[in-house]
Every structure is written in C-alpha cells, then in structure tokens.
Write a protein that binds this DNA or RNA. Structure first.
Lengths: 188, 188
DNA sequence: ACTTTTGTAGAGTGATTAGTCAATCGAAGC
DNA sequence: GCTTCGATTGACTAATCACTCTACAAAAGT
C-alpha cells in the first residue's frame, strides 16, 4: 500500500511545521498517521530520510502545480507574470508546505540535499529570466540576481498577505499590483 | 562575571548555526564556552531561555549598529538609503548572527518571543517609511507592505552576495545599484 | 496448495540529554 | 579570622527517543 506512505508524509508535514523537527518524535508521526512505529521505519529508514523525502515530495508538488499553470505558447511577459502570481497562489493555498520548504532551508538538513537537486528546481525560473534578458525584455543584470530579487519579492508578498486576513478579492488585487511594481523594476 | 555569560552566548551562536538546535546539546555549548554544565544552567534556566536570550542579544546588536550609522539630521531619502545599505553591511559582517535570526524565525521557538518584542524591532523602519509616505516621497501603499518589500529586497541581496565570492568593491557596487532599483520601486 | 516476499505490528534497547543537586570555592564585609 | 552568599563544579537522574527485532499476516508468484 502506497497509501500508508502518503499518510506518514502528511502526518510528518503537519507535526514538523507545528512542533519543529526536534519537537516531533517519530512515534507521534506514526500515531498520527495511524500506523505502527515499525511501519514508519519500513518506509523510511531513518528520520532524516523522512525529512528529505517530505522535502522532495513538497517541491515536486509545487513544481507540478506551476508547470500546469504555464503555457509555453504564451509570450514571455505573460509566462513570467503567471509564474509569479501562481507561485503566490500555491503558497497561500499550501501554507504548511510553503513553510516547510523554508524550514528545511534553515536547518542543518539542507546539507543532506544534493545541490543539483536544489538547482534543478530553480532551473525553470532561471530559464525564463535568461530568455527575458536575451530578448532584451529584462534588464541586463546577472540572472542569479534577477532570480533572487523575484523570489524574495514573492516571499515578501507572502509574508504580507498571511500576516493579516484579507478577502480573496483584495488579495488578488494586491498580488496583481505587486507584480506591476516588480515588473517595472526588472524590465528593460 | 558577566564574561562567562557572553562566552556561553558566543558558543551557543556558533554551535546552533552549525548544527541546529537539536544538534547541539547544552553540554557541548558549556564545553565550548569553557564552563561547566552547571554554570550554563546557572545563567540560563533552560535551553529555551538560552535560545531566546541569544536571539534578543543578536537583535540588539544589529539595532545598535544601525542606530549608530544613521544621522537623524539627514534628509529622508538618505536615511532610508543608509538603513538599507548598512543592514546589508551588518548582515555580511555578521553572517552567523544574521542566519541565526532567520533560524529562530523558522523554528517553533518564535512562539516564545512576545509579539511586542518583535514589533519594537521593526518600529524604527516602519517610522522611516511612514514619514516617507506622509511627505509624499514614497508611494501611498500600506506601510507594512512597503516594509516587507524592502526587507525581502535586503534578504534577496544578502543571498545573492553570499552565494558567490565577490570582491568588497564589487559588493559595494551591487549594493548601491540594487538600492536604486528598490528606490525606483517604492518612491512616488 | 505452497513457498516466498512484502507489509505491519509493537514491545524492547541502548544511547543521549536537559536539568538537578550537594559539595566546594572565593570574594566581600565585618 | 570568620561568616555569608553568589558562583562554579561535575556526577547523577529521570525521561525521551530513534531505531531494532521478532512474530505474524497478507499478497504474490509458481
């Protein structure tokens, strides 16, 4: 049954986010997932392996969502716009997952993730930006700089939107207006 | 002796950043600080208290540095500019401390920090921005939005500058150019 | 049918660790 | 010199937790 594996991952996500890595014993994860202690270790050899598997699973989830939203036929600005806006939508709809990714990044467990795995995940976004520079749509800055400017914009907006309770409508407005600010900053 | 307390905080900073909260036992902190196990618990009743004390100490350090750099007589744009640039300089010169602040933010320990303590620390920056909006120097956006846009810009730049090894000169150029981008985004 | 593999359970274990405590030390005041 | 009291020590404890192991059940394969 792959079912149990998913249950374990779901339970781990909830508990890790709520209580941190140290604060959630494997026994509690197993209990919350409705499986025995031994079963957890049948699917994940160590707690560390579970932490990393959950990270990969979460990242894959986000990537899949983004890919589904963006149409390769659209013109570049629209693709960048969609990539920005839907990153935010995904984050807002999957707050635990979005938080978990950052939680892993600020923990010693990042060291266990092969750099090429992390690189692969940003490749899509870097590609978009590279295309923009080449087409002289975006400022001729280093791609990595553009990339961090855009990602931190996303993180900032996320923080702003989750700090207060806005209506879905107002959220949409803020997100779209914030893209205009971002776009004016990076466009040629 | 206040000396020992400082030694413990310094040791804790190094170890927490290198191995995470769970990964560093209090015994190792005491050893690295050159004091006994009991002494550590004489100064900090619990490990949690040590974590929080280190957080406050670090934040105070940053605030003191920033206050010293900014002259209340300067005109607003210069004060904002200095606040941006020196935040980055401090972060680059105190990477462990800067990292630690974020590490705490993505851990369950944030919950133990009274919200008003966190608020007090952002009050200075919010004040600058409020002044800018009132003087019609900055766009009439919600201050909190402006604030997160600026802070995430700082974080993004920090990440970019630490990911690769640049000369001090080149770093200075990038920081100054990035402020222009930011300023164009937020100014009226 | 029967053998093999795979999944599941949960009690058990060895190691680790936060925090305690009783004993000493040393400086300051008298 | 004596007393007091905070600082300091490090052995100790009680609890926790990651992980193992044995036993059993259920599929899958033949």
């Amino acid at each position: 049954m792959v079912e149990k594996e998913k249950q374990i991952l779901a339970a781990a996500l909830q508990l890790f986010v709520a209580f941190g890595f140290h604060g959630t014993p494997t026994s509690k994860i197993a209990a919350q997932a409705g499986v025995s202690n031994g079963t957890l270790f049948h699917y994940f050899k160590t707690k560390e392996e579970l932490i990393i598997a959950l990270y990969n699973d979460t990242k894959a989830d986000m990537s899949a969502y983004l890919s589904a939203q963006i149409n390769g036929q659209d013109r570049l600005e629209l693709r960048i716009r969609k990539s920005y806006i839907h990153s935010l939508y995904w984050a807002l709809e999957n707050r635990e997952k979005f938080y978990y990714i950052q939680q892993v990044h600020f923990s010693p467990h990042v060291a266990s993730i092969p750099p090429e795995v992390i690189a692969a995940q940003t490749e899509f976004h870097l590609g978009l930006l590279r295309e923009g520079i080449q087409a002289e749509v975006l400022r001729p800055l280093p791609v990595e700089l553009l990339f961090t400017l855009v990602s931190s914009h996303v993180h900032g907006l996320y923080q702003y939107l989750t700090a207060s309770a806005f209506t879905a409508d107002h959220r949409k407005t803020v997100i779209e207006e914030s893209f205009v600010l971002l776009w004016d900053m990076i466009r040629k």
